[in-house]
Amino acid sequence: MPKIKSLEELRKLREQVQSEITTRTETGTTIIIGMGTCGIAAGARETMRAILEELHKRNIEAHVATVGCIGMCAREPLVDIEQAGKPRITYGNITAHKVPRLIEEHLINGHVIEEWTVGRLAQQ
């Protein structure tokens, strides 16, 4: 069984991040990607991959979650961005190549890309 990376690394990582996890899980940004059959067929998994890559490249710490079909199949891949203190924005047709602009404008510059949105949910 190949154990190239060892679980020992994970234990070290645990000690490293333990102190900061409470703040990180309660604040900040969550990105949610629709991953039903419709999303998968439209490229949602590649969108997720592009999002993870872009976050990594720009050193942004955000939570990423996937969900099943939410019923807007024709607009998949659907990506929701939720930031503390702001309305939750749903973007439609976010294929992988649109991800860099999405991350740049929404997360870095703080602008909603209006022409890509399909909805927004007021903050609770």
């Binding site: 020992e8 994970l10 234990r11 990582l13 991040v17 990594h56 939570h63 979650a65």
Partner: peptide, 21 residues
């Protein structure tokens, strides 16, 4: 196995997520 090594740190933590990938 992963959870045992991680304790209370969630699998979704950005750094853990990168490690898992």
């Amino acid at each position: 196995e992963i959870r045992q090594a991680l304790g209370e740190v969630p699998l979704t933590h950005p750094q853990v997520r990168a490690w898992l990938e």
